[in-house]
Write a protein that binds this DNA or RNA. Structure first.
Lengths: 239, 239
DNA sequence: CCAAAAGTGTTTCCGTTACACCCATGG
DNA sequence: CCATGGGTGTAACGGAAACACTTTTGG
């Protein structure tokens, strides 16, 4: 029955399964939170929309696989990537029983290789515009969004979605996009600055037609060490 | 190469993988937080300690599998069970490449079938006494403990580890065991009661040799609806 | 009646909120 | 010089922390 050669302690009575990885890729364009999807030009479910995914290779670590799949669509490396959940309903994939490990990616939308993405039929959608997805991919997206909202409230996660240098108003816009709610400008600013995670670059943002905002960078040192601390970036009773 | 019959849209070029489920089972004995492990009387790694686990069956949902495996060792059903993380380093299992999906279980230690557990070579350990485990199971345990600490700080999770009726001092002992820190009795009591999750049963705990504490039950209704709310059961700056 | 643990009350303090006010820029 | 958005300051409020005090029970 089994394709492998057996030895005394192998798992010969057990069944094997297809295992896929699907990536939920979030980006931010300065105004809205977006999701990167692909229009499938291959079977199954050709011409429908889905998450970017792929099968786990024979000798590939899961993290490597997720990085490979993300890279194939965006050209990016060293991206914020976190394993989220493994979907394993026996009937979730009508073609054949397949497990899917979902990975959650946050990218600065300006950094990705737009040509590569286009060549793979990738497209960015706001949540308003998002088409229905194949299989249980809508469920995956919902869980990932909930996770983003949950985690960004407690940990300095949002910075991953912004350019290297950013202003506090930009960061606020991002948080407002994540939670679809407005925040008080003055309190937000003080709360963010009080974390000590931001370094003033001395530069000012060029582009606004009013007072130019100060540009900050992340203090990578503190960011790493404080990442698992609690920060409460959202107002009390926010949820 | 592949054992299945193929059709036009099957995944014939892809590799399949063994997929296991391992359960990290937490219990509380009134004083200490404990972990349920098994001494393996089967290969591989016979006579060593490991988590309770098993392979995912051909047509079994993952949640069903985790419930089956937990039930085999404890006799319990309807237990708090949460999928945690999927371990998939290519070399994590020296016998054959195997993915392992870890599940996190919280049980009331009094409820389980001690005879069944014993017959499966199961044993409860405090974290002080825990032996080294096979493969990457120590890593799984550490991640599960971190998750318990994280989640119990924000959600009313601890109740799962206590009997149906419990006292506030018992609940406090549990939190102190989870975090290995002492809490202020008076503030803890007020904080817990302010959640409105506890119902006074009118009874008193029999067993202490001083003043008998009041017995409470969970308000299941509120528990369900508030489970995803933030509660902050631990003091500020606790971590 | 004493020790030990449980329950209730109170003051202090600090972080959050909800504001007002000032500053810089382009048209 | 004015509209718009960015930056800084502050009073009031509320929840948490740190206490003291009272009550119950067994020995």
């Amino acid at each position: 029955m089994n394709e492998n050669n057996q030895n005394a302690t192998s798992y010969q009575g057990e069944k094997k399964h297809y295992v896929a990885i699907d990536c939920i890729i979030f980006g931010f364009d300065g105004q809205k939170l977006k999701l990167l999807l692909i229009k499938r030009n291959f079977e199954p479910e050709k011409d429908k929309w889905s998450l970017m995914g792929g099968f786990v290779k024979e000798n590939e670590n899961l993290r490597e696989g997720s990085e490979r799949i993300l890279n194939e669509l965006t050209g990016l490396e060293n991206v914020y990537l976190e394993q989220l959940f493994t979907y394993g309903e026996a009937q979730r994939d009508p073609v054949a029983r397949t497990l899917s490990i979902s990975y959650f990616a946050l990218i600065n939308i300006e950094d990705h290789d737009a040509g590569l993405t286009k060549s793979k039929n990738g497209e960015w959608f706001t949540f308003d515009e998002k088409p229905p997805l194949i299989f249980d991919h809508d469920k995956m997206v919902n869980k990932a969004l909930a996770h983003l909202q949950y985690k960004a409230a407690l940990h300095p996660l949002g910075f991953e979605l912004l350019p290297e240098k950013f202003t506090i108003p930009q960061l606020q816009k991002l948080y407002e996009a994540i939670y679809d709610k407005e925040l008080d400008r003055r309190n937000f600013s003080r709360k963010i600055l009080s974390t000590g995670l931001l370094i003033d670059t001395g530069e000012k943002y060029e582009g606004g037609n009013t007072k130019k905002a100060m540009l900050y960078t992340l203090d990578k040192e503190k960011y790493g060490s404080q990442f698992n601390d609690f920060h409460y970036f959202t107002p009390k009773g926010f949820f």
